[in-house]
Simulated scan of single mutants.
Amino acid sequence: MDTPIISVITVCYNVASTIEKTMLSVLNQTYENVEYIIIDGNSTDGTVDIIKKYADRLAYWVSESDSGIYDAMNKGILRATGKFLIFMNAGDQFFNEKVLDKCLPYFLQEIDIISGIGYLSGQKWIPAKVTDLSVAFFLKKSLNHQATFINRKLFQKNLYRTNLKIAGDSIFFFQALIMDNASYVDIPVKIALCEKPGLSGQEKESFAELQISIKEILPNRMVSDVDFLIKYYNPAVRMIGGWLYKMHFLKRILRFIRTNRRTR
């Protein structure tokens, strides 16, 4: 059975204290068809020396200035040749050495986005179900970037937006899954360990950038809907609304109101 190439991309800057454990979690995978790419932002703290230590096991690496994290990620994407890409940045690790082997059945399918289980500062992050993916979902949440594999063909249409500082990965997922109807599957595989949130952990700033960007993508006629969802939508309201909608007497009342409106 031919196994597809999986491209793992690490972007980093001045992370000498954490880069080696990230690299080893990739290099020690039992899945053999891995293409490992490192994009360093011209570190000055010894990070590059650690990268050089394993240079013969890397498909590509570079240390040069960039215009921010999403510019660095785009550099890695343009170098990648794998069927699926995943970003494992400095401080992040695969859950164990068998992660990619466990994901092989999904790699062999024609899926656009595969999202598994991540752990963020010890807290379990369960991937969204396909039925959860909506405009409302992305206004409040996103997928775990480090626990999500992205089919490289999606990047042929859109790279990460370099004008964004925090929410570039969330906006990419929104564009792909909501606007372009990319295929998606959530899988019961533990993928990643993340010690602490990166830029996307700045919740207030991240949500503000996310909401502005979503409004820019959607048609103008939907901006008021977005404002409504931001203000009122939450899982509890959705659940209660679902229960109420299923109650037959409420359906009869709604049907009566609609019928009266039409006959006036």
Rank of each mutant, 00 (worst) to 15 (best):
M1W: 04
I6R: 10
S7C: 13
T10P: 01
V11W: 00
S17A: 08
T18P: 00
T18Y: 01
T18L: 04
K21R: 14
M23W: 00
S25D: 01
S25E: 00
L27S: 05
Q29T: 02
Y31T: 05
N33M: 03
I38N: 04
I38Y: 05
D40S: 10
D40V: 05
G41H: 13
S43M: 07
T44Q: 12
T47L: 06
D49S: 14
K52E: 12
K52Q: 10
K53Q: 04
A55E: 15
A55K: 12
A59T: 10
Y60V: 06
Y60I: 04
E64H: 08
S65D: 12
D66R: 14
S67K: 15
D71T: 13
M73N: 11
R79M: 13
A80D: 07
I86F: 02
M88Q: 14
D92F: 00
Q93L: 08
Q93P: 00
F94K: 03
K98G: 01
V99L: 06
D101F: 01
K102Y: 11
C103H: 06
E110M: 06
E110S: 14
I111W: 07
I111N: 04
S115P: 08
Y119L: 07
I126H: 12
A128G: 10
V130D: 08
D132S: 14
D132I: 09
A136N: 12
A136F: 05
A136L: 06
F138N: 06
F138D: 04
L139N: 09
K141I: 01
S142L: 04
Q146P: 00
A147L: 06
A147W: 02
R152N: 11
K153V: 11
F155T: 12
N158Y: 14
L159W: 08
L159Q: 12
L159I: 06
Y160E: 03
R161D: 11
T162Q: 13
I166C: 02
A167C: 15
D169S: 13
D169M: 02
S170A: 14
F172D: 01
F174W: 06
A176C: 11
N181P: 00
S183Q: 03
D186F: 04
I187Q: 08
A192D: 12
A192S: 15
A192C: 13
P197N: 14
S200M: 09
S200R: 14
Q202L: 14
K204D: 13
E209K: 08
E216C: 07
E216V: 03
S224L: 08
L229I: 10
L229Y: 05
I230W: 05
N234G: 11
P235Y: 09
L244G: 13
K246H: 13
H248T: 11
F249W: 14
F249V: 09
L250D: 03
L250P: 01
R252Q: 14
L254R: 10
R255P: 00
R255L: 08
R258K: 15
N260E: 10
N260W: 07
T263S: 10
